[in-house]
Computed example of a mutant assay.
Amino acid sequence: MAGSDMPLEELLEHLLGLANASLSLWDLPDDATARLINVSENATYMVEASDGHRSILRVHRENYHTRRAIECELAWLDALSDENVVTTPGYYTGKDGSAIQEARAPGLADPRFLVLFHFVEGSAPDESGDISAGYEQLGAIAAKCHLHAISWKKPDPFERLTWDVDAVFGKAPTWGDWRDAPEVTEDVRGVLEAVEATIRSRLAIYGKAPERFNLIHADMRLANLLVDDSGTRLIDFDDCGHGWLMYDFASSISFIEDDPRIPECKAAWIRGYQSVRALSAEDLAEIDTFVMLRRMALLAWIGSHIEAPEPLSLAPGFAATTARLGQAWLDAVA
Rank of each mutant, 00 (worst) to 15 (best):
M1T: 12
M6C: 12
P7A: 08
L11F: 11
L16T: 15
A19I: 05
L23S: 11
S24Q: 14
D27T: 14
P29R: 08
D31N: 07
D31S: 10
A32D: 11
R35G: 14
R35A: 06
V39E: 03
V39M: 11
E41M: 07
A43T: 10
A43D: 00
T44A: 04
Y45M: 01
Y45A: 04
V47W: 05
V47M: 08
A49D: 00
H53V: 03
H53E: 12
R58Y: 01
V59N: 03
H65T: 07
T66P: 06
T66E: 01
R67H: 15
A69Q: 09
A69V: 05
E73K: 06
L74D: 05
L74V: 07
L74K: 03
A75C: 00
A75D: 08
L77Q: 11
D78A: 12
S81H: 14
S81Y: 13
S81D: 15
N84T: 10
T87G: 13
Y91A: 12
T93I: 13
G97F: 03
A99Q: 02
A99W: 10
A99F: 10
E102W: 06
A103F: 02
A103R: 13
A105D: 06
G107P: 01
L108C: 01
D110Q: 15
P111T: 02
L114G: 01
L114C: 01
V115S: 00
V120A: 07
E121R: 13
E121Q: 14
S123D: 13
A124K: 10
D126I: 05
E127R: 10
A133N: 06
G134T: 07
Q137A: 15
Q137G: 14
G139M: 06
A140L: 10
I141F: 12
K144N: 13
A149N: 00
S151R: 15
K153W: 09
K153F: 10
D156I: 13
L161Y: 08
T162N: 00
V165P: 00
V165T: 14
A167L: 03
K171Q: 15
R179C: 09
A181Q: 07
A181W: 06
E183C: 08
T185N: 05
E186A: 14
E193S: 10
E196K: 00
E196G: 01
I205T: 13
K208V: 11
A209N: 14
E211R: 03
R212N: 02
R212F: 02
L215D: 06
A218W: 02
L222Q: 02
N224S: 02
D229W: 00
D229K: 14
S230I: 09
D236R: 06
F237Q: 02
D239W: 00
L245M: 13
M246F: 09
Y247A: 01
S252P: 05
I253N: 03
S254Q: 10
I256A: 08
E257I: 01
D258V: 04
P263D: 11
C265H: 08
K266W: 06
K266D: 12
A267M: 06
A268Q: 07
I270Y: 02
I270T: 14
Q274F: 09
Q274V: 08
V276H: 09
R277K: 12
A278Q: 12
A281L: 11
A285T: 00
E286H: 04
L299R: 03
H305M: 07
I306F: 13
P309M: 04
P309C: 07
L314H: 13
G317V: 01
G317Q: 09
A319T: 05
R324Y: 13
L325W: 02
L330N: 00
A332M: 08
V333K: 05
V333F: 04
A334T: 10
